[in-house]
């Protein structure tokens, strides 16, 4: 089936098999490997992208479902060398260790702050619950999301 999808600002038209998952379309057809495959079964959130501005797990969406819609991946956030506040905060707070979950974390944090610009620490933890990180214990990730929201990140610091 032919689909037309706007990905990170560029419109693409491609022939895809109906069973193609969105994440594989992004990675293998478009070469957008910034979006990673983690668990492949909608658990870990590493493959999170925005579909019409709202976060989804791209291993849990068919490419044909994105036909006629707009997708934003981790590769479409920064404006040239200028990072978004979420990206900048992840860098400053060192909100990663191995970095594999980071694209999904940043996309979900972007969605979270779009719907709740000043979340409490608790709201950050709940809002990020669909994203798993096996390295950090989430400590610096929560700090980064709070910092990106313009709030003092210290409140995120005490609860490991």
């Amino acid at each position: 089936m032919n689909i037309t999808v706007k990905v990170d600002g560029t419109s693409y038209t491609d022939e895809v098999e109906p069973r193609t998952l969105l994440v594989y379309y992004l990675r293998e057809t478009l070469g957008k490997t910034g979006t990673v495959v983690g668990c492949d079964t909608s658990n870990c959130g590493a493959c999170t992208v925005l579909l019409d501005g709202r976060s989804v797990k791209s291993c849990n969406v068919l490419a044909v479902q994105a036909d006629g819609h707009e997708v934003t991946t981790i590769e479409g956030l920064a404006d040239g060398e200028t990072l978004t506040p979420v990206q900048e905060a992840f860098r400053e707070c060192h909100a990663l260790q191995c970095g594999f979950c980071t694209p999904g974390m940043i996309m979900q944090a972007t969605d979270l702050l779009a719907t709740n610009p000043s979340p409490t620490e608790d709201e950050v933890r709940v809002g990020m619950e669909g994203n798993l990180c096996r390295c950090t214990g989430y400590h610096n990730i929560v700090k980064a999301v709070l910092q990106a929201s313009g709030q003092p990140a210290s409140s995120g610091g005490e609860q490991a």
Binding site: G45, L51, Q108
Partner: peptide
């Protein structure tokens, strides 16, 4: 239930 991403879909 679920997570933010799944509730969006």
């Amino acid at each position: 239930g679920a997570s933010g991403q799944l509730r969006n879909m």
